[in-house]
Design a protein around this nucleic acid. Sequence first.
DNA 1: CGGCTTCTTGAAAAGTATCAAATATAGTGG
DNA 2: CCACTATATTTGATACTTTTCAAGAAGCCG
Lengths: 181, 181
Amino acid sequence: MNSVRQTQTHPAGSRIYGAGNPGQAWRVLSGAVRLDRSGPGVEPMFANLAVEGDVIGAETLLFQHYTFEATALADCVLSPWPEGDGAPAGESLLAALTHSETRAADVVALRCGQAVERVTRLLFLLTGGRAPQLADMPLPSRRDMAEITALTTETVSRVVSQLRRAGILPARKQRGRPGKS
Amino acid sequence: MNSVRQTQTHPAGSRIYGAGNPGQAWRVLSGAVRLDRSGPGVEPMFANLAVEGDVIGAETLLFQHYTFEATALADCVLSPWPEGDGAPAGESLLAALTHSETRAADVVALRCGQAVERVTRLLFLLTGGRAPQLADMPLPSRRDMAEITALTTETVSRVVSQLRRAGILPARKQRGRPGKS
DNA sequence: CGGCTTCTTGAAAAGTATCAAATATAGTGG
DNA sequence: CCACTATATTTGATACTTTTCAAGAAGCCG
């Protein structure tokens, strides 16, 4: 879709790369990415999340192919990582590692507590913690939100309706594009 | 408790290090470690898990202090990481990074599905996937298991009882030591 | 305008959490 | 070694939340 070694953009819902395919690592400049562990024959299972500033696909520097499948949860801009030429500096790798670990903790926390809290925390995470911006962000598909929070699409839908009635989310009409899985 | 730069052992239930404290990184040679995000004043919240082969505390190479709090879920043997002198090689760091990401996916998966599946998957993860060994391993405290799987201690207890009645776990008498929190 | 997928909502069923009480276990000090 | 205390585990009964199943409504695309 886009040329290698240059900044890429991916519309919400599109697949960025597939597990097992060759490719490079990326830094997420904006947007949010869903990572899935997808075995052969097995349907993809949600594994992790990447938001603005995170690095995805670093395993390609070691294995030459992606371990997870990446899908855009929102319109995304990605740039090749590491930023310079050749192998990443140790410092950069370390930063990516520690960053990845705090992000993992965030994702684990998305599956604690009741449905409303989980969905709310997810939306905050996707907007980088900027509450006001909740109003402007097209929501991910109910299915994505459900699989990330370990709820069902119906429950997520009910929570979204509830947040709208409470004025925490604006009324309707803010979906990106229909997930074209 | 133990000298620095040498192999350490920690009994089940003991704290390995605390968030904010200075220290070094370790590789888990055996046992299992629970990592918590513990804010000031906030009680620790489960963040991640490390089992045999995993590296913990790598953030100290960047920040000089631990980001998470580490507690032994089983008797643990740790050795300083990286194994050689000085900074870890890029390859080693990359391996730690990719390893950490698959582990994170494992932990996220521990919070999917019903109570019985979650607890069962946790036990498999803690034994490195070796089912027979389930019989020999002292179980972590119900509280640890509950916080890891996002269940309550009562529910975990009921599941353990159920697994024992089904012959999947041996009857009783296999706790390590009482968590001394 | 169809055809299709996603989203929404309702009603009932299932699964967990909660609350409470009894039992078991470890540690301590005689 | 035993009694005693504090903590952890277990179990039961009930309340609550979420899932499940089903049916419409809404949105997208050719």
